[in-house]
Design a protein around this nucleic acid. Structure first.
Length: 256
DNA sequence: ATGGCTATGTAGCATAGA
């Protein structure tokens, strides 16, 4: 089973790339973030014609998450239970027996910002909710844009980013607190090239200069991490015309 | 170098991303 996640930074703009990528990579499920679409404008028809089911929780202009899948997702739920968040940042569904969460963690803007407080609170809510989800669903995968570079090796210039948003210690603690629930960072289960990134700033030719951060992650419950055979970042789409600033992350799971 | 790109909403810029 192949699972993937991709912050597309507008599904309206990126739909052709997403369709091409789905055809090439053939995932069983692809989690999207930053669709920036109301549900009414979600391209269900174009996806269905290409053979993909989808569930979406979106809003105008900002945020928006989806799960695309070959099989029909079942038991779809938007949001974090018990957390009345107006921002559409989480959707969950079961695909081929695996519970999948597509998550778009708040950016935080800067450590001085009110948005940073919201981010840390949001991460605490996510953790509390996932504890219960893990108890309910043994095979649980949480894929998405975490907006956290977990370690110094996930940052092109750790000294310059030290203490900054995406790299601050409270954010990294929040990420570790998710792992402590019993999740594995699928990417780190394997030997990886040094300086592997999933996001590059659009400005200053950061992609061409190979200067980025690893902030998009696939977290696997123990039942799934033991089945994980590979996890890679596909940098191909970042080099395309009119790319998203994020690259897809893919993991392959052996049969149960 | 506190900018630099890109996308959206909306009609010349403001907001947000990370």
């Amino acid at each position: 089973m192949r699972l993937a996640t991709w912050n597309v930074n507008s599904l309206k703009v990126r739909l052709p790339q997403v369709l091409d990528w789905l055809a090439a990579q053939q995932p069983d499920a692809l989690c999207l973030q930053e669709t920036k679409l109301e549900d009414a404008n979600f391209p269900s028809e174009a996806l269905r014609e290409a053979g993909w089911h989808a569930v979406h929780a979106g809003q105008k202009t900002y945020n928006g998450v989806a799960i695309l899948a070959r099989s029909e997702p079942v038991d779809a739920v938007a949001g974090i239970a018990g957390f009345d968040d107006p921002q559409r940042r989480v959707i969950s569904a079961t695909v081929d027996g695996v519970r999948i969460v597509s998550a778009y963690v708040p950016n935080g803007e800067s450590v001085e910002s009110d948005k940073y407080r919201y981010k840390l609170d949001w991460l605490a809510r996510l953790r509390d909710w996932l504890r219960g989800e893990l108890a309910t669903h043994g095979a649980l995968a949480v894929l998405g844009d975490y907006n956290i570079a977990p370690e110094a090796r996930d940052v092109y210039d750790p000294a310059a980013w030290e203490g900054k948003v995406l790299c601050s210690e409270p954010e990294r603690e929040a990420f570790r607190a998710l792992l402590d629930l019993g999740f594995s960072d699928a990417f780190r289960q394997f030997e990886q090239a040094e300086r592997s990134w999933s996001w590059w700033d659009y400005r200053m030719n950061m992609f061409k200069r190979k200067l980025g951060l690893r902030i998009d992650h696939i977290l696997l419950s123990s039942a799934l991490s033991s089945r994980c055979a590979a996890c890679v970042i596909d940098t191909g789409p970042r080099g395309a015309e009119r790319p998203s600033d994020h690259a897809p992350v893919i993991c392959d799971l052996r049969a149960a």
